[in-house]
Design a protein around this nucleic acid. Structure first.
Length: 292
DNA sequence: ATATGGCCCTGGTTGC
DNA sequence: TGCAACCAGGGCCATA
């Protein structure tokens, strides 16, 4: 399940391959889901635009796009797609949420089209961007900044947030800290894997009431999350299930999981058996000795 | 306002 | 071995 480190890895990979390229044709496999914006409007909006940048916000991939070719006044390209739009400001965005099983791939047009391919963007360079999502929990969205539709994740960025703001997120909250970490309107990008791993590293039990954590525990948690996420990004994310990056390469952070999906196995620190409970309807793994 | 639980959806795993 | 029931889970929505 792609969370912050996986989405970051994918964003970097896709960015490196499509930056400066132009979308010349758009194909959607269905008129309905997984589209937050109707497929026809997305296709109309995407066609002809230049890709300025691909980056991550929370668990969302954001493709920053240049002005619509009809309005840009730039020649309809054909030569080098690069440079021309450099420094050009974003006019629209394509937002991709991968859900559980979504993948954003950059391929050649000849590459076999995987089952459950829902979108294909043909680029001027000849490459293709493909969105594949068997479970269809992912979402595609088009935002026109001229209409004031710019995207911003509601929650704070776990890699940026500072101590005071982090503590304030949980003040007065009665829900379990694990549930609070999964709430994307508080903190954007933390999912089940990194919530469990962060809580382990901080030594905090997942069922503790968020508002009752002491200040030093919150600070341990903030730093633990940041370190776990940064470490995972360095390793290309966690490849559980079928996650791969834009090139189809797996990540390796799953080899370093301390608790996630290690139910019944010995804690890597103290050998206590890792337990599995359900918090907020999600499997939750922790060490009853290391976490208090 | 905050919190909880059901729902979506398909592939992999489990159980008979 | 074969097949069906079951489970995973992010985000959204209705409900308490």
């Amino acid at each position: 399940m792609p969370e912050l480190p996986e989405v970051e890895t994918i964003a970097r990979g896709v960015h490196a391959r499509v930056r400066g390229d132009q979308i010349v044709d758009v194909w959607f496999g269905s008129k309905k889901e997984p589209f937050k914006t109707p497929a026809t409007r997305q296709a109309r909006g995407l066609e002809g635009r230049t890709i300025l940048e691909v980056h991550r916000t929370g668990k969302h991939l954001v493709m920053e796009l240049g002005a619509s070719p009809g309005l840009a006044g730039s020649s309809p390209a054909g030569g080098g797609p690069l440079e021309e739009n450099r420094g050009g400001s974003t006019a629209a965005q394509w937002i991709v949420h991968l859900g559980m099983t979504g993948r954003l791939l950059v391929t050649t047009p000849e590459a076999p089209v995987a089952k459950h391919t829902h979108a294909r963007l043909t680029l001027a360079s000849g490459r293709e961007v493909r969105f594949v999502d068997p479970r269809r929990f992912g979402r595609l969205e088009f935002r026109d900044l001229a209409k004031g539709e710019g995207f911003g994740a509601p929650g704070a960025e776990p890699l940026q947030i500072e101590a005071e703001a982090f503590a304030a997120l949980f003040r007065g909250r009665k829900l379990a800290i694990k549930a609070a970490l999964l709430n994307q309107t508080l903190l954007a990008g933390v999912g089940n894997i990194y919530a469990d791993e962060g809580l382990f590293r901080a030594g905090v039990r997942p069922r503790r009431q968020a508002g009752r954590l002491r200040r030093e525990e919150l600070e341990r948690l903030r730093v633990a999350l940041r370190e776990v996420l940064q470490h995972a990004i360095r390793l290309g994310g966690s490849s559980v299930a079928d996650y791969v990056d834009a090139e189809g390469v797996k990540g390796f952070f799953q080899l370093e999981h301390k608790v996630y999906q290690r139910t019944g196995e010995p804690c890597r620190v103290c050998k206590t058996t890792i337990l599995r409970i359900v918090v907020a309807g999600r499997s939750t793994h922790y060490c009853p000795t290391c976490q208090r």
